[in-house]
């Protein structure tokens, strides 16, 4: 049974059809590359899955159960984590406290609750180690590379052991060397059985890490096939419309 199953998901904004009836499935431990030009509907689809937008029509099933999310918090509670493109980090705080921001570990002393910094640093260290990242829990985010920042944002999604992790353009704003680090993080997520949707403009990244690629064009899914059965040329053609449908 797929972990996520979308049927006929459509969304319009007034007269504009952003998404016109998309079917999509995702299996456990699978990395799906979601590609498409600007305005193809990628963001709309991701926002619907993450609960920040509601579909006009269509159904969404999580582990076979039909779900409806009114808010991002509901999607998160159901096991869907979105890593924003801007990462939502506070660069004056150390890596570990960014991981736990909003979900801090506290210790009760009498009527008071105090931050359990030791526990948070230790847990963050474990998470970074699981992700095979060299990020150090005590380092300030301000002093970190783009790849390490991405690791912090991804480590945050692991606190709740989510079913699905959505990554929005994680390699868009970082150096080539750090891209490799981020792709490593994604492989690490897959190896622990998480399903990943990677939204990206970068063809080499998708081909290096994804198991399957889905292409959106003008709100329609025009391709959905295993990486092994396609090529960068074909996907480029599908994105631009040079190839109608695959």
């Amino acid at each position: 049974m797929p972990v996520l199953e979308l049927r006929g998901i459509a969304r319009h904004f007034g007269a504009i059809q952003a998404l016109g009836g998309v079917d999509l499935t995702l299996d456990r431990g699978e990395v799906l590359g979601l590609m498409g030009d600007n305005g193809a509907g990628k963001s709309t689809l991701v926002k619907i899955i993450a609960g920040s937008l509601q579909p006009s029509t269509g159904t969404m099933r999580l582990d076979g159960q039909e779900v409806r999310f009114a808010r991002p918090g509901e999607a998160r509670a159901a096991g869907i984590e979105l890593v924003h493109q801007d990462l939502a980090l506070c660069d004056n705080l150390p890596a570990a406290l960014n991981v736990f921001l909003g979900r801090e570990i506290v210790r009760r002393i009498g009527p008071f609750r105090f931050l359990d910094r030791g526990a948070m640093f230790a847990r963050a260290e474990e998470l970074f180690a699981e992700l095979k990242s060299e990020t150090r829990p005590r380092d300030l985010v301000r002093s970190m590379s783009g790849g390490q920042r991405q690791a912090v944002a991804i480590a945050r999604t692991r606190l709740a052991d989510p079913k699905i992790v959505l990554l929005d353009e994680p390699t868009a704003a970082i150096s080539v060397r750090q891209v490799e680090e981020v792709l490593g993080l994604i492989r690490q997520l897959r190896s622990t059985g998480h399903a990943v949707i990677l939204i990206s403009h970068r063809m080499p990244d998708v081909f290096s890490v994804a198991d399957r690629v889905a292409v959106l064009r003008r709100g329609q899914k025009v391709a959905d096939k295993p990486i092994a059965q396609t090529s960068a040329e074909e996907v480029t053609g599908l994105i631009t419309g040079a190839i109608e449908i695959a």
Binding site: G73, H84, D86, L87, A88, L89, C90, D91, N92, L93, L97, L101, G102, R103, E104, V106, F112, R113, F114, L115, R117, R156
Partner: peptide
Amino acid sequence: HIVLRHTRFGLHVYAVGANPRAAEENGV
């Protein structure tokens, strides 16, 4: 000092000052 450095509220004060949007997205 204890409130700022050792409580959830104190941490949130620093987070709001640095990046209120990020703080909001993380449930602060």
